[in-house]
Nucleic acid binder design. Structure first.
Lengths: 200, 200, 200, 200
DNA sequence: ACTGCCGGGACTCCCCGTTCAT
DNA sequence: ATGAACGGGGAGTCCCGGCAGT
């Protein structure tokens, strides 16, 4: 129903779709699932989104992308970017929503399901990975300049592996349904990144 | 077809289903897709498997599981398990089939799509993760005994993070469609595991 | 758009609907097709026409009917109505728009699609047939009076068959997509009507 | 239901579809209409026909075509083909099923609705027209040889116009819902064809 | 008075996983 | 092991109201 508030209706659809796609997968989620939970008619949905695929793209562009990148954006503004990265890891490890985590990372799930067949999805998520890696890579370079880490660290390789770690976590958490595992993993990744610091 | 060879038919269905599930996802693959590619009748499929879900379970149990675990089984028999792990990583990095890799890891894809809704899938894959982690963990313990790595290494944490790295790789490769990335990642993971070796 | 000209908007909708109904059929034409081509909003359409069915009726009443009847109206004013009919046939044969013809006669198409289920359509088109036949019938009677044709001609039967010929033409042209066929048919129909002339 | 008789099921669907397409048009007939009347499941329909369009093509090829051509096939075997044509016209005029007639000719209706947009339909019906015209044309030629009609008759033109008459009839009957009109028209067409006979 | 945006559902064709008689 | 039949959804489209502002 929702007496005439297009933006609100759109956002509602978007966020409900985001949740369902994460939990049940893209192909596992029917538009009926979405409109039922949103208490909105099919006409409303198709007024806002051309089709299911466009809805997914909007979800990725407007929700998943921000959720994925925002935690990292500030690390390069810090005096000690390495410390900042550790802090971010610590925070997401501590504040992880159990239910959310156990459904895996939405970005990750969508990529695993559709990456091989839907170029639109793949390119969007690749962009996210690149953007995030760029931030980490910059953080490493800055840290070299400031003599926080060794100059012979291969920033590209390390930042790539960092992204790999980030991507692997939700997988393990989903499979064992245990959030503690997530904290161990963020710890371990923090250890990894800290291992490049200069010994003083 | 019609050449009565039940086991062959079954295996054919199994391996075609394995490929399609990996590439197009479970919900994205229809039974018609499978029987068309296998050139087998619908009745034949239902003779061998109770339903689509059981087919998936069989695929996991009989194909995915072995593919996932077999490379690691021998590392604990080696004199230097750490070196053995590095070798395995090097091999899978070098021999990676481009097309296969770019579709992501089948285990991983299935978990991402169904992990949150299908306990049968989740438990099977969790078991694989645990079994693999156990191997790595044992390898680390053995290496401690043999003074290959430091005794204060937290084998559980490291092996867990190792699994995390393993799980994150196909994700990144899928998104950028570039196998070189895979080699860089196996390298980086090898670096990681080597970093625990005693300095002599 | 937005240039407030209600009559123009209405006429635009009417004539675009007329074309689309002819080409794609009534059920094959969606209101979206119409408003897209007319560059008019849905609200505008519904302001001018109560619903799709009323739009069709208006199309028939205001456009199809005139197009169908106007060529024949003057034949009875002629000194030699038979000659006048031949002339009309000759003209429509010669001036036939290729594209238009190959889509069939709009009146005809609508009747064929909806005649059996929509009384409103059937009655309107029946009226057109009757009116046209009346003209031809009158032309024959006048010609009898003036000794142009034999007095024993059954005007009703001939005029009915004349209408039959008129109705059958577009059908054949549509099926073979060849306007020459149309000219042959108008010729043949002219031959038919001329065959009743007195031999002098 | 319907205890396993594929051919029967198929034919049932075909003939019910044939009736509904004639009465309500192609776009006006839903697959639900068809399966409800046939008391057959949706799956059964899609087992026999790839889609709605293929169903239509099958209806045309297997039912409409025969109904349309069969009455004329024997006229060229007759001693007096012209007389045979008259007889056929007389028969279909006399035996016309009221209800059927008032829904128009199925071939005709389908062509009017879809001829401009569906080549498959157009080509099929064009073939029927050509085949029928060929028969009439041959009948005229044979009649010339046997001195039944004048040698200067343009067989092609006359047979074409004959087809035109055949095609126009159902149109008029549909619009006035009066079968007597049909008899008058078959009479008039018989008159027309007879008019070419030699006067003895 | 007239037009535009938002929304409502029923209905469309089609496909899916599954069962059953053969 | 076959393939005909089943029936429940799948996404998407349709025609249509109703509120807002001109």
């Amino acid at each position: 129903m929702a007496l005439r508030d297009p933006d609100k209706t759109r956002l509602k659809l978007l966020s409900i779709a985001a949740n369902l796609f994460q939990k049940k997968g893209y192909n596992g989620t029917s538009l009926s699932d979405i409109i039922n939970e949103a208490e909105v008619s099919k006409g409303a949905l198709y007024h806002h989104f051309a089709n299911k695929n466009e809805l997914l793209y909007s979800v990725i562009d407007e929700l998943y992308r921000e959720r994925f990148l925002s935690p990292w954006r500030d690390v390069i503004k810090s005096q000690d970017p390495i410390q900042a990265i550790e802090n971010v890891l610590h925070n997401i490890g501590k504040n992880a929503d159990v239910k959310e985590m156990c459904n895996g990372c939405p970005v990750h799930n969508v990529l695993a399901e559709l990456g091989a067949t839907d170029e639109g999805v793949r390119l969007r998520i690749n962009q996210m990975h690149c953007d995030a890696q760029k931030i980490i890579c910059d953080a490493l370079e800055i840290s070299k300049d400031r003599n926080i880490i060794n100059k012979d660290v291969d920033s590209n390789k390390v930042s790539l592996f960092f992204m790999c770690g980030i991507n692997g976590m939700p997988q393990l958490v989903t499979s064992c349904q245990n959030v503690e595992v997530f904290q161990q993993l963020t710890d371990a990744l923090a250890d990894y990144i800290r291992s490049f610091k200069m010994v003083d």
